[in-house]
């Protein structure tokens, strides 16, 4: 049973990697994030394959996906939906917006105004939307992949810390390696290929996998290690502020999924280290540079300083 699930997942990983060449780690992180039932933020320059990744994930997992391109004149109703008066029935009827889907790709989220951003983020957090006093539950699973340009670019509204915290992970794709890029150039566009990917996992199977991830064992020594990591972010002078308990829980949840993907029934420190950057980097601020671009450096510091084995 578990073996079949694992075969499916491996198949999914292979499919995804065939579309996003040379990005095995990011693909795996994205899948981990999904298994951990969290939302993913992909931050990179335009044209790095963010949208391709989102599409490919939706195809491979057989999820119903919609896409919103965020713009600065967008209103919350454009995401959530509107109630429109039906003259025939002489009452208002709710027309659901694009948010009513299983996998939502929110492209360039930081182009929208804070008001619109927060409408989406609220939906992400609550799993439901409220329109004119009525609550509408979003489908399950509900998974948001938001992409954004680095906030130092023009015409962007950077997400505030409180909303960044809603994203379980933040990954950057980065430029491809030279040989991969050569292959990419030779092979033509990848977006079409993403459309042709086959479904590897049904939604019930996805649910089973998520269940399996929750069962992964985290021993006392491992939890100690995670705690020491969190403690360091709070005590070190390099950090302007530390990781919240929610961030800590997210870290452990992701490490469990990563371990499951690696085929283990228990978490080892390497699992934590593998997801640490993606989970923690957007939740911390450097004390010396408040622009928020030092996250990776801080994570590197965290890895180097905190001993896996505490005495």
């Amino acid at each position: 049973m578990v073996e079949t699930l694992r075969t499916h997942i491996d198949q999914a990983l292979k499919s995804l990697s065939s579309v996003l060449l040379g990005k095995e780690r990011q693909v795996r992180l994205a899948l981990t994030c999904l298994l951990a039932e969290g939302h993913l933020l992909i931050e990179d320059l335009p044209g790095m394959g963010k949208t391709t990744l989102a599409h490919a994930l939706a195809r491979v997992l057989g999820l119903d996906d919609k896409r919103i391109q965020f713009t600065s004149d967008m209103l919350p109703a454009d995401i959530i939906g509107v109630s429109i008066f039906e003259p025939r029935e002489s009452q208002f009827r709710f027309h659901p917006g694009p948010v009513f889907t299983q996998l939502l790709l929110a492209d360039e989220i930081n182009r929208a105004t804070p008001k619109t951003q927060s409408a989406l983020l609220e939906a992400m957090e609550e799993g439901q939307v409220s329109v004119e006093g009525e609550s509408y539950t979003l489908p399950r699973p509900f998974f948001v992949i938001a992409t954004q340009n680095p906030s130092s670019q023009f015409g962007t509204f950077p997400l505030p810390e409180s909303q960044l915290d809603r994203f379980l992970m933040r990954v950057t794709l980065g430029y491809p390696a030279p040989e991969v890029e050569r292959e990419l150039l030779a092979g033509g566009g990848t977006r079409e290929r993403a459309q042709q990917l086959e479904q590897c996992l049904t939604p019930p199977q996805l649910k089973q996998v998520q269940e399996g991830c929750r069962q992964v064992h985290a021993s006392a020594s491992l939890i100690d290690y995670v705690q020491r990591l969190l403690q360091y972010t709070r005590e070190s002078e390099e950090f302007s502020y530390g990781v919240s308990p929610r961030g800590g829980l997210a870290l452990l949840r992701c490490a469990r999924c990563w371990a499951w993907l690696a085929g283990r029934d228990h978490v080892v420190p390497e699992d934590v280290q593998a997801v640490l950057g993606a989970v923690v980097a957007h939740r911390v601020r450097s004390a010396s540079d408040l622009s928020g671009h030092e996250g990776e450096r801080l994570v590197a510091r965290l890895l180097a300083e905190v001993d896996v084995i505490g005495h």
Partner: peptide, 9 residues
């Protein structure tokens, strides 16, 4: 052993 390395690694 580096601090970030677990014993087994």
């Amino acid at each position: 052993r580096l601090p970030a390395e677990s014993l087994s690694m």
